[in-house]
């Protein structure tokens, strides 16, 4: 039995999620951070820094997925074993 064309690439899903999160936090960190927010996080603009980190993570996953795409072989490279009940009887 030939498998359906493999699963979607999880790495791209991770990249997209963190790109969205990263950009949102970057924008909030750059443009919408008030004194109260800074004071709460002990003076760190944590939204900005986390946003940068997330964008970098997203980029890494995107690069990885691009450089090493999932290859779905036409024929499965290992012969599929029967998926039913394994042989052997009960004792």
């Amino acid at each position: 039995m030939a498998r359906k064309a493999g699963l979607f690439d999880l790495r791209l899903v991770i990249a997209v999620l963190f790109a969205i999160y990263g950009v949102v936090l970057l924008v909030v960190g750059l443009g919408f951070t008030e004194e109260a927010d800074l004071a709460k996080a002990d003076g760190l603009n944590i939204n900005l820094w986390t946003g940068i980190g997330m964008v970098v993570l997203a980029a890494l996953f995107a690069v990885w997925a691009t450089l090493r795409p999932v290859i779905v072989p036409d024929v499965p490279d290992t012969p599929d074993l029967p998926t039913g009940q394994p042989s052997g009887t009960e004792g």
Partner: peptide, 11 residues
């Protein structure tokens, strides 16, 4: 609740 501002709080 003590340390994270809105944005990071959501994360």
């Amino acid at each position: 609740g003590e340390l994270l501002p809105n944005g990071m709080l959501g994360i």
